[in-house]
Simulated scan of single mutants.
Amino acid sequence: MSDSPRVLPGFSLSLGYTIFYLSALVLIPLAALVLKTTQISLGEFWRIITDPIVVASYKLTFSASFLAAAINAIFGLIVAWTLVRYDFPGRRFLDALIDFPFALPTAVAGLTYASLYLKDGWIGGLGPNIVAGVNGVAGWLGAGPALAPDTLDWLTFPYTGQTAGIVLVLVFVSLPFVVRTVQPVLQEWDPEYETAARSLGADKLTIFRRVIFPELLPAWTSGFATAFARSIGEYGSVIFIASNIPGKSQIAPLQIVTKLDDFQYAAAASIGVVLLAISLLLLLAINGVETFARRHERAA
């Protein structure tokens, strides 16, 4: 009998509750999703998931999600490093602000970004507004139009049929995952290892690359994976800033909602199964890289 106190019930009861809990919330719903696709033939299933519009939505969803996760992997690490390593006025406020995307409804985030960055928004409309203002003054002076309408198009936020706006909102909703995954590891990190490496003649870049980052790599990879997975399923914020043109700027979750609105439940389930399968494969691959990194670290 173990001398350590057991706050929770014994192993059998705890394991049984864990399996029941995960089955009720995860396994059974996922099995039901897969079972829903059996209502159609294999040929019909293949036709739905290989439809050019649906395939285009897959490409946009995964490419934008990967890009957003990669951006957060870089800048989220910088944010976590700053919050842990430096003490400055407002640090606690910034630390609390990181969790804001968790509390804010994603539809509100989409509306906010759309009001800022679309062509008629405060920032997105900056170029056309400047052109209109300059031409207005030139017309008042009797000089005629001074600037062509497309002179400052580079100031207009590129959202129609492109991924820039989608990536922007996905960066917003997935930022906390990287920061909150890396931050605890940095807080537990002992700076004496850096001092020892510096005493041996290592420069700052070498210390970070050979001493600090290997310790951060598993958590950093997990943060990237969770940010990527979160971005794949995002819907509420994206539909407000994307132009939602079929085959160009429609994400896969919007394809699912469109099928549901048309009462094509099996078709919606088919697209969902593809998203589920690809997400699981990617997460398994990322977890495999994380496991390899940990084994390499222990061997070293």
Rank of each mutant, 00 (worst) to 15 (best):
A225V: 11
K204T: 14
P176S: 14
V182L: 13
S231I: 08
V185H: 08
T156I: 11
R230M: 14
R230L: 13
I232A: 06
V171G: 02
F224D: 04
R209Q: 13
V173H: 00
V211Y: 03
A197M: 09
L205T: 14
L170K: 02
S222E: 12
R230N: 12
V179I: 15
G233A: 00
V182R: 11
V169H: 00
S222L: 13
L200I: 07
L217H: 00
S231H: 10
L175H: 03
L216F: 01
L155C: 12
A227H: 07
I212S: 05
A202H: 02
G165F: 02
F213C: 10
A229P: 04
G201V: 06
L168P: 07
D190C: 00
L175Y: 02
V182Y: 12
Q187R: 14
A227Y: 05
G201Y: 05
E188L: 11
G201M: 09
G201K: 01
A196N: 03
V211S: 07
V179P: 05
K204F: 04
V169W: 00
F172H: 12
V171W: 02
V179G: 09
G165A: 13
F157R: 03
T151H: 15
V171T: 13
L155S: 10
L205N: 03
L168D: 04
T181F: 00
F213M: 13
T163W: 05
G165L: 00
R230E: 06
T221H: 04
F157S: 09
P176F: 13
D153I: 12
G233N: 00
I207W: 11
L200G: 08
Q187V: 10
T156E: 12
G233Y: 05
A219K: 09
I166M: 08
V185Q: 10
L155E: 05
L217S: 13
A227R: 09
S222W: 06
R180V: 04
L217Y: 02
L217G: 07
R180W: 01
I212K: 11
K204P: 00
V169E: 04
I212H: 05
F157C: 10
Q162S: 01
D190K: 06
G233K: 04
D153S: 15
L205R: 11
V185M: 11
E188V: 06
T163N: 05
T156Q: 13
S222D: 12
W154Q: 07
L168W: 00
S231A: 15
T160M: 02
E192G: 01
L216V: 00
P218R: 04
V171K: 00
T160I: 10
E188M: 08
L152D: 13
Y193W: 15
A225N: 13
V178C: 12
D203F: 06
V211I: 14
P176Y: 14
I212C: 03
I232Q: 06
A196I: 13
F228D: 01
S174M: 07
V178K: 09
V169C: 03
P184G: 11
V169M: 02
L168A: 15
K204H: 10
